[in-house]
């Protein structure tokens, strides 16, 4: 094995092989996060269930009981749970990945490993919660006797899009936070607004036509619509919005890695 350490390595060279070599570390970091997450709590793992259930309850109270939103054939709890299923993964990954590099200062200033591992590990931790939420959704579907539509075979692709988008945002934010700590304060705000401008608790069909181009600038809108379409066969948004979302996600992902690589080289010096 020969390594050359030089100033100014070429700009875009994502070393996938190296990341693969460090896969053990990737899973160890994810394991560590998961393991220490509920350390010294009384309820422990139960928190993983309580949080989404309480949010769901509030959604039911606000959108179903107070506002009486119409979700067609899909019972509201199932409808909202689907939105939350996708949204909570997204918000977890961007919140955790965003500050991940800065909070592992001790590590990155002392040992070398591909830094991308850190935000990547957060998406794995998020995925465990995602699976738990999936079980909760399944139980709700069984309880309300909702049969999935035949579009369900597309669901894995939609989930894949969600993962890529979350990662892209997470990587972008983690690299930005290294340089501008301000981003740390922007992220929670971003998540809060995102919850309102994405069809989590209400259907996107509630959005007036003239605002839709603006609405679908948020790629999560398309993804949550995709989730519901593949599960219940609810209508999809206009094709142009889907294409726009797809291209946007890809672009975000590629640029995130590019920017991360650029910042990565300076981490130890500026962190």
């Amino acid at each position: 094995m020969k390594t050359i350490i030089e100033a100014k390595r070429s700009g875009f060279s994502l070393n996938f092989r190296e990341i693969f070599q460090y896969r053990d570390l990737l899973f160890m970091l994810a394991f560590r996060d998961y393991r220490v997450r509920y350390a010294q709590t009384i309820l422990g793992f139960t928190w993983a269930l309580i949080q989404p259930l309480l949010t769901l309850l509030i959604f039911i109270l606000v959108f179903n009981k107070a506002v009486k939103i119409n979700t067609g054939a899909v019972p509201y709890p199932v409808f909202a749970m689907t939105g939350m299923w996708a949204w909570s993964y997204f918000s977890y990954v961007i919140m955790q990945a965003g500050q991940s590099i800065v909070s592992s200062q001790a590590l990155v200033t002392k040992v070398y490993f591909p830094r991308l591992i850190i935000p990547l590990s957060k998406s794995i931790v998020g995925f465990i919660d995602f699976l738990i939420a999936f079980l909760m959704l399944l139980s709700l579907m069984v309880y309300y006797r909702v049969t999935p539509s035949i579009n369900i075979f597309v669901l894995p692709f939609v989930i894949f899009a969600l993962i890529v988008l979350s990662l892209a945002m997470g990587i972008w934010l983690s690299a930005l936070t290294i340089r501008f700590r301000d981003v740390q304060y922007v992220i929670p705000f971003l998540v809060q607004i995102g919850l309102y401008v994405s069809p989590v608790g209400y259907p996107s069909s509630e959005i007036p036509m003239e605002y839709r181009p603006l609405y679908y600038l948020n790629p999560m809108a398309g993804i949550i619509d995709g989730f519901r379409w593949s599960l219940f066969g609810t209508p999809l948004p206009d094709a142009k919005y889907l294409v726009f979302s797809g291209v946007g996600i890809l672009l975000l992902f590629v640029t995130s890695i590019f920017y991360f690589r650029r910042t990565e080289r300076l981490i130890a010096d500026i962190i």
Binding site: T3, I4, I5, K8, Y112, A268
Partner: peptide, 11 residues
């Protein structure tokens, strides 16, 4: 952990 400004090292 950090990059050199000039020169190189081969390992």
């Amino acid at each position: 952990i950090t990059e050199p400004t000039e020169g190189r090292a081969i390992i």
